[in-house]
Design a binder for these strands. Structure first.
Lengths: 198, 198
DNA sequence: GCAGTTGTTATACGAGTGTCCAACAAGGAT
DNA sequence: ATCCTTGTTGGACACTCGTATAACAACTGC
C-alpha cells in the first residue's frame, strides 16, 4: 500500500519564490512587527526550519522579498511603457500613472512597501536596495521628460518633483483609500506634467 | 549622613511627557521592530516597570507618542503661519514649505512618522489619528489656496496634490538625504504652487 | 521625627522570537 | 529493489518580549 507523501520536495528556485511570496503576504497583512519565521513558514505551508535552510537569516529573506517586489514593480512599469503609444507625451504619462493601477496600486503591495521603509532605517541592505530602486525610477523619468522637451537644466528637479508627487499620492491611496481614488491621482499627475512641459 | 536618593519622584505629567519623548526617540532610532518597553525605559532612564505604571500597555504609549508628534507638527505649522507676512501667497508658501525646516524636517521625526505609518495598518487608534491629522492639514491648505484665488471647484484636487507632493518630498528627505536637500524641496513646492495659482 | 501614600524598582512568569541540529523520508541514481 | 543524496521536519536552545506583582523608598502631611 502506498501511503501519500507527508511532504513534497520542490525545486529550490520555486521554493525560494514561494517563501518570498509568503513573506510579502505576511508583511502586508501583519506589518513588520508580526513578520516572524513561523508566520512566514505557516503562510507558505512549510515547517519553520525550512526558512533557515534557504536563507541564512530572516533578514536575508526580507531583503530578498524587497528585491522581488522591486523587480515586480519594475516589470509593471516597463509593461506600462510597452503598452503606451509611441507619442512621447503619452509614454511619459503612462509611466507616471502606472503606479495607480494594478499591480502597483494593490493595497497589499503598498503595505509591504511601507514595511520596507520602516526597515530601511536599521537595515543597510534594504536602504541600499531602496536607493537603487529610487535612482532607477528617477533616471527613467528623466529620459521620458527629456523626450518631451523639458530643458536639460531642469530635468533633475522635475524628476524629483514628479517622483515625490507619485509617492505621496500612492501613499495616501494606501493609508486612506476613501479620500483618494486612482482616477483622481491620475488626473493630478496629468495636470502636474502639463505644467512641467508647457 | 544623607545618602543621595537612588531615584527621584517626578510629577506624573512630566513623567508621562518624558516617557513619550523617549518612545519617540527609540521609534526613530530603532524603528517599530526595536521599540520595546525595555528600550523605552532605558532611553528614559527609568525601570521597565514604570512604563506599565503610567500606560496600560505599550500600544497605548505609542498611540500617545503619535498624538504628541501630531500636535508638535501642528504647532510648528501654525508657528510658520504666524511668522509669515500677511500676503496670502507668502502665507501659503510658508505653510507648504514648513515641513522642510526644523522641527518638522528633523530626520528623527520623519523616521518616527514612518514607524507610525507601518502601525496604522494594524492599529485602528493610530489610523484614526492619521486621518484626523491629514484632514486638518488638507483643510488648512484649502483655506490658504482659496485665499490665493484658486477656483473653488479645483480646491479639493489642488489640496490633495500639494499634500501628496509635500509628503513625497518629506519622505525622500528622510530615506535618502543625499539626493535631496531642504532648499530644493522648497523650490519644488514653490514652482508647483506657481503652476497651481497662475 | 514619624507614619502614610504612592511613585519606583526589581523580579518573575508565560509566550514568542531567531537560530540550530539531529532525525526522517522523498525521489533520483544505480 | 536498493542505496544515497538532500529537501524537509519538528523540537531544543537561549534569548527578548509584554505584563503583573511584591518589596522598596522618596516625598507629604502630621
Amino acid at each position: 500500500m502506498s501511503a501519500k507523501p507527508a511532504f513534497r520536495r520542490a525545486d529550490p528556485d520555486l521554493r525560494r519564490q514561494s517563501l518570498i511570496e509568503a513573506c510579502t503576504r505576511v508583511l502586508a497583512r501583519l506589518g513588520v512587527a508580526g513578520t516572524s519565521v513561523r508566520a512566514i513558514a505557516q503562510e507558505a505551508g512549510v515547517s519553520p526550519g525550512l526558512v533557515n535552510h534557504y536563507y541564512a537569516s530572516v533578514d536575508d529573506l526580507v531583503a530578498a522579498a524587497y528585491a522581488e517586489v522591486g523587480v515586480r514593480v519594475d516589470r509593471a512599469l516597463e509593461d506600462a511603457l510597452c503598452a503606451a503609444p509611441l507619442d512621447s507625451r503619452a509614454r511619459l504619462e503612462a509611466f507616471a500613472t502606472a503606479s495607480f493601477a494594478p499591480p502597483i496600486a494593490d493595497p497589499q503591495l503598498l503595505a509591504t512597501w511601507i514595511a520596507f521603509w520602516g526597515l530601511a532605517r536599521s537595515q543597510p541592505q534594504i536602504a541600499a536596495e531602496h536607493a537603487r530602486q529610487y535612482a532607477a525610477f528617477r533616471a527613467r523619468l528623466e529620459e521620458l521628460l527629456a523626450a518631451c522637451a523639458v530643458a536639460p537644466a531642469k530635468l533633475g528637479r522635475a524628476a524629483i518633483a514628479v517622483t515625490a508627487l507619485i509617492d505621496g499620492l500612492w501613499l495616501e491611496l494606501c493609508l486612506s483609500p476613501d479620500t483618494l481614488v486612482p482616477d483622481e491621482a491620475r488626473a493630478i499627475v496629468r495636470d502636474s506634467l502639463d505644467a512641467l512641459i508647457s
